[in-house]
Design a protein around this nucleic acid. Structure first.
Length: 285
DNA sequence: AAAACTCCCAACCGCATCTGT
DNA sequence: TACAGATGCGGTTGGGAGTTT
């Protein structure tokens, strides 16, 4: 594709991957695991750049990739999540087991985007670019040009279902108030509102919303989220890499869960309460 | 039958963020 | 603290398949 290479790619293959290349990459990762993408091609003997290898693996070769049509339920979820999160494809994909951000992005651009085009624009998540956008195309005009109100959060891939009893915080969730249910999340995806390794955070001072407000938000169609984001103007940058979750991110994360299982909204209520207690305990030490 | 057009999606790019030194 | 390299993400492109004329 006639573009200048992103890095020194002289002598590297470009374009569609061959079956042989796929096999080399798959074998290598099965043997050595993911990561070290930069060195992977050299070691594995692939004439591709590391970025290309990573993308090929994540979007196509991973064994847990679910291929095939997007189901109606998945479609509904994508629409709902997009309404909440905007074009944060990796975050959306993280809630759809086996789906990739690229797949969802493509699906949105080719199907859902047109269908919901007449609806209010989602909150834009495009990071401000210091450089002018590349050559404009009719397609690019459909991209949201609004300023970003949402910070970026680390996308986490949802790979399995946990029941509430398996939830690491299950003890803080009053099971007596809930029916048997599943909370969808990754095992490594448990929000850690206190920050990694018990690092003190700006968590407490940020909490000014009453639980009633949170409750209203959960039960709303997320139309209030923009205002909530505006209220988070204390300069605390949203975490990337999952280091620290601000209340906004925490709320966001849990709101996403509620998208999947609306009837477990009470979990959030109990969870959030326990988080507050934990934080208070830590500060009291 | 074939040219023109449209649509889909894999792959690419640039940039932001993370991580190590 | 500053810097460089690595990684991750979202926007965009273009080839090929499918459809229409």
């Amino acid at each position: 594709m006639g573009r200048s290479p992103c890095c020194s790619k002289v002598g590297l293959n470009r374009g569609a991957w061959t079956a042989a290349e796929d096999k080399i990459l798959t074998d290598y990762i099965n043997h050595h695991g993911e990561g070290k993408w930069r060195n992977l091609p050299k070691i594995a003997g692939l004439k591709r750049c590391g970025k290309s290898c990573r993308l090929r693996w994540l979007n196509y070769l991973r064994p847990d990739i679910k291929r095939g049509n997007i189901s109606h339920d998945e479609e509904e979820l994508i629409i709902r999540l997009h309404k909440l999160l905007g074009n944060r494809w990796s975050l959306i994909a993280g809630r759809l087991p086996g789906r990739t951000d690229n797949e969802i992005k493509n699906y949105w651009n080719t199907n859902l985007g047109k269908r919901v085009d007449h609806q209010p624009k989602p909150i834009s998540t495009r990071r401000p670019s210091k450089k002018k956008a590349s050559t404009g195309t009719p397609k690019s005009e459909t991209q949201d040009k609004n300023a970003s109100n949402l910070g970026r959060t680390k996308a986490v891939r949802c790979s399995k279902l946990l029941t509430s009893s398996q939830h690491p915080r299950a003890e803080s969730i009053d099971s007596s108030t809930e029916p048997a249910q599943s909370v969808v999340h990754n095992s490594s995806d448990v929000p850690n509102p206190t920050g990694e390794e018990d690092k003190p955070t700006e968590f407490m001072p940020e909490i000014e919303m009453g639980e009633e407000s949170l409750w209203d938000l959960l039960n709303s169609d997320f139309s209030d989220l923009g205002e909530f984001n505006h209220s988070n103007s204390n300069g605390v940058s949203p975490s990337s890499g999952g280091a620290i979750m601000s209340p906004k991110e925490l709320l966001e994360d849990w709101t996403i869960r509620e998208c999947l299982q609306p009837f477990v909204a009470s979990s959030f209520h109990h969870y959030f309460s326990s988080v507050l207690e934990s934080e208070e305990d830590w500060l009291a030490k």
